[in-house]
């Protein structure tokens, strides 16, 4: 008798199906976002040469800012593009009625929207950026080589943002992208205000700069809460 919770064969079949579905929905966006360093380079070349500045090079701060904005938008929106349909009566029913267990569907969801697609995007972005810098070393700053962020920061933050995107996809009925973005922005501002208040009261401003471990723990905690929400929501969803 097949295991009703988790069956490897059934999961493999489901996962491949779900991955291909996600690629259909977010494949083009992944490709375009991953190629942003090339677009940035072309735009920079066009702007600088049009104003007569021929000895130009891209600014590291600008590259990092663009990478941060594109990444946050990508991590937040891709889960919505892939799984936003779940709350739709027609498409959601199709998803829920597929013969696979809840844990298989949820695992597939997490793997695709929080791990695989963000990894594909990150690899593409960093690869494209590195390629641009290898081809035009005088014009570019390689953000990976120049990056001040360490490996842990590059793991915890994107995972949390993707988990927030997935939670938004399941929480909101419509205008999921805008509502998720606004909710995250408001939460971020409120969080900053709380941290500043605490730091002021403690009379220790260094807390923000030095306690990075606490920041990672906080991110990990938020991610776990968001994932727990997605687990419960997908299990209890009613259409």
């Amino acid at each position: 008798m097949e295991n009703s919770c988790f069956n490897i064969g059934r999961f493999r079949r489901y996962f491949v199906h779900d991955f291909l579905r996600c690629m259909k929905k977010a494949g083009l966006a992944t490709l375009l976002c991953g190629l942003v360093p090339i677009f940035t380079l072309i735009m920079s070349a066009w702007i600088f040469t049009s104003i007569g500045l021929h000895d130009w090079h891209t600014d590291l701060f600008m590259n990092e800012a663009i990478a941060a904005i594109v990444s946050v938008l990508y991590f937040l929106m891709v889960p919505i593009a892939c799984y936003g349909d779940l709350t739709d009566r027609r498409k959601g029913a199709q998803y829920l009625m597929l013969p696979a267990s809840h844990i298989e569907k949820w695992t597939g969801m997490i793997l695709n929207s929080i791990i695989i697609l963000p990894l594909v995007f990150s690899a593409l972005y960093i690869g494209t950026d590195a390629l641009c810098c290898a081809l035009l070393p005088k014009r570019c700053h390689d953000i990976l080589i120049s990056s001040r962020a360490n490996g842990l920061a590059l793991f915890f933050l994107p995972t949390m943002v993707s988990a927030a995107g997935l939670a938004g996809a399941l929480l909101f009925k419509n205008r999921k992208g805008a509502k998720t973005f606004i909710t995250c922005a408001v939460s971020f501002i409120v969080l900053c205000m709380i941290i500043i208040t605490i730091a002021k009261k403690a009379d220790n401003w260094l807390i923000i700069g030095t306690e990075t471990e606490a920041w990672y723990i906080f991110q990990a905690f938020c991610t776990l809460c968001l994932l727990a929400y997605t687990y419960i929501k997908t299990k209890k969803i009613e259409l």
């Binding site: 097949e2 009703s4 009625m97």
Partner: peptide, 13 residues
């Protein structure tokens, strides 16, 4: 929504 139940059923909305 167990898989063994879902594989025995089709719902056309």
């Amino acid at each position: 929504r167990e898989p063994s139940f879902l594989s025995d059923l089709y719902y056309l909305s």
